[in-house]
Write a protein that binds this DNA or RNA. Sequence first.
DNA 1: GGTGTGACTACAT
DNA 2: GATGTAGCCACAC
Length: 128
Amino acid sequence: MPSFSSPPNQQNYYEEVWMIVRKIPRGKVATYGQIAKMIPPPNGVDIEAYKAFAPRWVGGAMANCPDDVPWQRVINSKGEISERQGAERQRLLLEDEGVKFDAKNKIDLKIFGWSGNDDAQPIQSKLF
DNA sequence: GGTGTGACTACAT
DNA sequence: GATGTAGCCACAC
């Protein structure tokens, strides 16, 4: 596997990515950039560099994710599945979860996009 | 130690 | 909206 990251720090970063991905509720999807923004850059990494490459690190995390991580819920910023081996299975898994694809095989992030707070469905009577 | 590359994104044209 | 380009990390060869 390519694995453009192996150091302990990066492995730890991977675990953070997986933790967030596991938090994505069924029927919702998140983008690489969205996940990247939820995770602070590792120590020693410039924020600018992180901002530019974090999405790829998330992609690397997905490439090495355990089987219990719903990697299929992680897509690119366009709301489409990044083509690769297994992309077909990814679409099937998402459809099985209730995620709908449009004519262009794209997902409407306005509907299925994950805000990052799965336990805050009621906008009322929550914190604040 | 230079070069290519990877499940990306944002901005410009 | 579809292309093209910049951004700039870590790894394999």
